[in-house]
C-alpha cells in the first residue's frame, strides 16, 4: 500500500508536468485544429532558458520560472506568425507537416548552437525530503505540484473571465461568426500560442529541477506523452488536458513501480490506442451537436 501511495505521489508530480504541456496542445488544437508537434521543443527551450539564466545571473527559482514563461510565450507567438499563419487557409496536413519541421528545426538548431550533450540543470533549491505517513515527498515535488496547480487555476481564470479568454473560446467555436463581431482571429490565435507556450516553458524549468538534466532532444518523448494526455482528456477540452496529464503521469510511474520500467512508454501508447478505440472523444471531449 505504501509503495502504491508513494508511486501515486511521484506520478502526480510527473503528471502535473504532462498536464502543463497537454494544456498547450489542447488549446492550440481547439482554436486552429493543429497538433503542434513543436510544442515539446518549446518546453525544451524553457528548460534551456532556465539553465542559462540561473547559471549566468544566479537568479532564484521564481525569476527563472517567470522569465522562461515570457521567453517561450514570445517564441510560441513568433513560430505561429512565421510558420503557421501563412498556412491558415492551406489543408490541415500542410500545417501538421510544418509543425514536425519546426520541431526538427528547434531540436537540431539547439544541438548545433549549444551541443547535443546532456547538461546538469543547476540545483537552485536544496533538496529536502519530507516523510509523511510513511511516504517520502521531496520539497521539489511539492513545488512542482503547487506551481502547476497554481498555473492551471490562473489559466482557468484567463479563459473563463477575461475578454481575450472568452474570445479564444468564441473563435474555437465559430471563427466566421467571431470575425463578424470584429474579433481579429489572428490576435486571438497568437494569444493562444503565447499562453500555451508559456505553460510549456514553465514545465521545462520544473522538469529541469526534477530530473536534474536537460538536452536538446528532451522535448520529444514528453511532447508525445502530453499529446496522448490531451487526447485521453478529450482534445480541445482544457480540464480534460489537466486530467489526462495526471492520468498519464500516474500510469507511467505505477508501471515502473510494478517492475515494468522498460514498458513505461509502451503503456502510454497502448492507452492512446485503447482510448481511440473505446472513447474516441476522450474523457471530457464533446461530440459535435447542432441545434436547428
Amino acid at each position: 500500500m505504501d509503495v502504491f501511495l508513494q508511486q501515486l505521489v511521484n506520478g502526480l508530480s510527473l503528471g502535473s508536468i504532462y498536464a502543463l504541456l497537454a494544456l498547450g496542445y489542447t488549446m492550440v488544437y481547439g482554436i486552429i485544429k493543429l497538433i503542434n508537434f513543436a510544442h515539446g521543443d518549446i518546453y525544451m527551450i524553457g528548460a534551456f532558458w532556465g539553465y542559462y539564466i540561473i547559471n549566468t545571473y544566479h537568479v532564484d527559482f521564481f525569476v527563472a520560472l517567470v522569465s522562461a514563461m515570457v521567453v517561450t510565450a514570445i517564441l510560441g507567438m513568433v513560430i505561429e506568425f512565421l510558420a503557421y499563419r501563412p498556412l491558415r487557409k492551406a489543408p490541415r496536413i500542410t500545417a501538421l507537416i510544418t509543425a514536425i519541421g519546426v520541431s526538427y528545426f528547434l531540436e537540431n538548431g539547439m544541438s548545433l548552437l549549444f551541443g547535443a550533450n546532456t547538461r546538469d540543470f543547476p540545483q537552485i533549491i536544496t533538496h529536502k525530503t519530507l516523510t509523511f505517513m510513511g511516504i517520502e515527498i521531496s520539497n521539489i515535488q511539492v513545488l512542482i505540484l503547487c506551481t502547476s496547480i497554481f498555473l492551471m487555476i490562473v489559466l482557468q481564470i484567463i479563459v473563463k473571465k477575461t475578454k481575450m479568454g472568452i474570445a479564444m473560446r468564441a473563435v474555437a467555436i465559430d471563427p466566421d461568426a467571431a470575425e463578424l463581431m470584429g474579433i481579429n482571429s489572428n490576435h486571438v490565435i497568437s494569444f493562444t500560442f503565447g499562453l500555451g507556450s508559456a505553460l510549456a516553458g514553465a514545465a521545462g524549468v520544473l522538469i529541469g529541477l526534477y530530473y536534474n538534466s536537460i538536452d536538446p532532444m528532451m522535448g520529444m518523448v514528453p511532447g508525445i506523452k502530453a499529446f496522448v494526455a490531451a487526447v485521453v482528456g478529450g482534445i480541445g477540452s482544457i480540464p480534460g488536458a489537466a486530467i489526462g496529464g495526471f492520468v498519464i503521469g500516474t500510469l507511467e510511474t505505477l508501471i515502473q513501480a510494478v517492475g515494468l520500467s522498460a514498458y513505461k512508454d509502451a503503456a502510454v501508447y497502448i492507452v492512446l490506442i485503447l482510448i481511440l478505440i473505446v472513447l474516441p472523444t476522450g474523457l471530457l471531449g464533446k461530440s459535435a451537436k447542432e441545434k436547428v
Binding site: R169, A170, I173, D176, A177, G182
Partner: peptide, 28 residues
C-alpha cells in the same frame, strides 16, 4: 468599427458560451 453589424444566416450563436458571454463578444 464603422458601425455596421450583421446577424448571420443560421444565427451562428456561440454554443458553449453563456448568453451573457455571447453578448459580450458582440461588443468586443
Amino acid at each position: 468599427q464603422a458601425k455596421i453589424a450583421q446577424v448571420p444566416e443560421g444565427r451562428r450563436i456561440f454554443a458553449g458560451l453563456t448568453v451573457r458571454e455571447n453578448l459580450q463578444m458582440g461588443g468586443f
